[in-house]
Design a protein around this nucleic acid. Structure first.
Lengths: 203, 203
DNA sequence: CCCATCGACTTAACGGTGTTAAGTATACGA
DNA sequence: TCGTATACTTAACACCGTTAAGTCGATGGG
């Protein structure tokens, strides 16, 4: 037979085409500014065809974001393997997180800035099992390692990780959204932020 | 004469009616979910009437946000007057900032989370002279006071203020947008964040 | 080999959005 | 009293995400 397999391969190809077209548009112009009709134009199909491959517009985005955040998770896990010093590992991880956000501003925006989580009527982003969770997991592990090595002091690694994450997110998201603000300099801000946080945790 | 004055008073009244209706809808349902037609329904005028009083939808929002953020600015300036100890003043200011954000999540969202500043096609929020600037000004003053009293160490108060603001913003915005995240507890997070930051700045 | 079926895809439409152009009615000053 | 300026409305434009219905060609069974 084999025709069935070929058909499925072709379906998969078109699915990838949609994802690729959508990613390029989302990343360059932002989710809201890209319409289903424009994605359809790009792949030269009618808009409704997309609905044969994805439930709705948000589903396309979710899949793209998972793919992208998998890169962040891998990068963080690599740091975890390569850097033996716990405190340095934490510092490098923080840097990598912000760097990732600034490199993929539209992905970052969609997952951590824009979402309408918990809002009535809003599509809930599923956090459990997501790449975002894996990335946060790295941060908590790094904090626990530092605590074990007595590099930092904390009686609640979860709390500390969340505080750390919130701060990193704050700088990342502000640099993304308030682009024209008279910032004191990206790299200086990043260094000063991470330095202050780690100093604060060492007490 | 006097009819001109009366007319202007009536125009001003309708303008306020629009603002009030829009504020209530924006605050309870969020900016994006409220349409011009619904605002118009609420005040029992046709949608186009609104355009005689405001340039567009964003202009309504901007005015509402300025009014709301004026409250934050006043509150921060009050703290500045009442609290003599610079470090305590900074700490209270940080608390007030986060507290304000959590109390006015939709206003906060619109000014600091959602905006498309600097994006081609996006309406630029004018930062200069805004209430947001006044609020940030308080933070910088507090940092400078602390530095002068040698409560904290910094060779660049502007840089330090921005880092501080970014961290506060991070927690505020995450608590607003990722409502269903398994947070370690609002108050504990706030305390731990501010504590860590100030400890880090004291070195 | 023909025909029915099924799957992929399209066309047309629904109900919504922000916004604008054109039209109407009313209250006012001369 | 009349003409005009003002306040407001109706109708429309160009979009949006999404769905229902229809087309058409490839496929597999008799």
């Amino acid at each position: 037979m084999g025709t069935k397999e070929r058909r499925e391969r072709e379906k998969e190809n078109l699915r990838r085409e949609i994802l690729d077209a959508a990613r390029e548009l989302f990343v360059t112009e932002g989710y809201e500014k890209v319409s289903m009709r424009r994605i359809a134009d790009r792949i030269e199909y009618s808009p409704t065809t997309i609905y044969l491959y994805f439930e709705d517009k948000a589903a396309i985005l979710t899949e793209i974001c998972e793919e992208t955040f998998a890169k962040l998770a891998r990068r963080l896990e690599l740091i975890r393997k390569k850097q033996p010093d716990p405190l340095e590992r934490l510092r490098e991880g923080c840097r990598a997180y912000i760097d990732f956000g600034l490199r993929h501003p539209n992905h970052y925006r969609v997952v951590f800035i824009d979402p309408i989580h918990g809002k009535p009527g809003g599509q809930d982003y599923v956090y459990e099992g997501s790449m975002g969770e894996r990335a946060f997991g790295f941060l908590r592990l790094s904090v626990e390692d530092c605590a074990a090595a007595e590099d930092i002091r904390t009686d609640d690694p979860e709390l500390t990780s969340q505080v750390l994450w919130a701060s990193l997110h704050g700088l990342t998201s502000l640099l993304i959204t308030l682009r024209e603000f008279p910032w004191a300099g990206k790299q200086r801000l990043i260094d000063h932020l991470i330095g202050t946080l780690i100093d604060g945790l060492r007490r």
